[in-house]
């Protein structure tokens, strides 16, 4: 019953078909495409985790890449330097990212909008600078390569299915969070923080919880990146990636749940395609972003759902 309320039967069928296609994909595609689709899912998950606070919370999280990077580094460092079983890395990476998110949130959450974002970005730069320079521990600007991955998911197919399963589970959990009472209150804060405060909502506390959840799932995406690539590097924490993740949310549509997933996948796929023809990928991305801001500010999925919604409303009106 609850499921029916959350998801319409038509979108349920669509999701099931998409999942079936993704599950069968490795048996049909070459190694490179399996890798690419896995990376699309990882990046999509990352963008979706940002959208929890950006789209649903209305918070300018300008340093989200930090949690992605820290999740990945924590998992890699635990395995390589700590010598623990890699599975522990997968478990603890997101926890470390969430803890960092809590710490940063405690410092920043009293600020609003642009000030919040700028303080986040300066704290994020601090973390990046430490990772970038601490050669003896993090490998500095070279990063770390050949991070051991559990044998079960060591092959490209294994990694792909691991990424697929974790992504689907995370998306489901995030979907439930967004539609939970907490998620509803969170969205009400986005729409009107003063009113939410007035009806007795603890705004700061909700925002802090939202940040921790987003940081956690950002960390999950980071550990998945380690699975796919087997390496980590400081660019994963750099602020330009943080802004790129915002572009992904914008591209897919940040007022829809699956928009950022689509946006993340699109950016990864576009980069792969454009990269074949030209070295000037960032220029292409910049132009895409400009066009988006001018013509499609609600994103691709947002655009289509708005049109569908309008169509449905017209039909119901008849």
């Amino acid at each position: 019953m609850q499921k029916q309320k959350l998801l319409g039967s038509r979108s349920l069928i669509l999701v099931a078909l998409l999942l079936a296609a993704l599950a069968l994909f490795p048996s049909m595609a070459s190694r490179y495409y399996i890798y690419l689709v896995a990376l699309m899912m990882v990046t999509g998950l990352l963008a979706t985790s940002l959208n929890l606070v950006l789209g649903y919370g209305g918070m300018y999280q300008f340093n989200h890449a930090v949690f992605y990077g820290v999740g990945a580094y924590a998992a890699a460092l635990l395995t390589v330097r700590g010598g623990v079983n890699p599975w522990w890395g997968y478990l603890l990476g997101p926890v470390v990212a969430a803890a960092l998110s809590l710490l940063m949130g405690l410092i920043c959450v009293r600020l609003s909008k642009l000030y919040f974002g700028m303080l986040q970005i300066s704290l994020g730069s601090l973390v990046w600078a430490v990772v970038f320079r601490w050669y003896s521990f993090t490998g500095g600007d070279d990063g770390m390569h050949g991070v051991p991955v559990p044998r079960l998911i060591g092959s490209i197919d294994g990694a792909y299915y691991f990424v697929l399963i974790v992504t689907v589970v995370c998306l489901a959990v995030m979907y439930l969070i967004v539609n939970s009472p907490f998620g509803r209150v969170f969205q009400s804060i986005r729409d009107n923080p003063e009113r939410a405060e007035a009806i007795g909502v603890n705004v700061r506390q909700h925002q802090l919880v939202g940040l921790v959840i987003a940081g956690f799932f950002g960390g999950v995406a980071g550990t998945l990146f380690v699975t796919v690539e087997g390496s980590v590097f400081p660019d994963m924490l750099f602020w330009t990636l943080s802004l790129e993740i915002i572009i992904m949310c914008l591209l897919g549509g940040w007022f829809t749940f699956l928009g950022p997933m689509l946006g993340g996948g699109m950016v990864v796929a576009l980069r792969a395609v454009v990269g074949i023809y030209t070295d000037y990928w960032t220029m292409v991305l910049g132009i895409i972003l400009m066009l988006l801001i001018f013509f499609l500010p609600e994103g691709v999925l947002g655009f289509f759902t708005a049109r569908l919604g309008r169509g449905r409303a017209v039909r119901e009106g008849d």
Partner: peptide, 26 residues
């Protein structure tokens, strides 16, 4: 043409400009 938009959009626009100008220099 964009001054009426919210801060985030303006910031992202200047970011896109940075991406383009970086490659123009290259």
């Amino acid at each position: 043409h964009l001054y009426e938009r919210e801060h985030l959009m303006l910031l992202l626009f200047t970011f896109s400009l940075m991406l383009v100008l970086g490659d123009v220099v290259k």
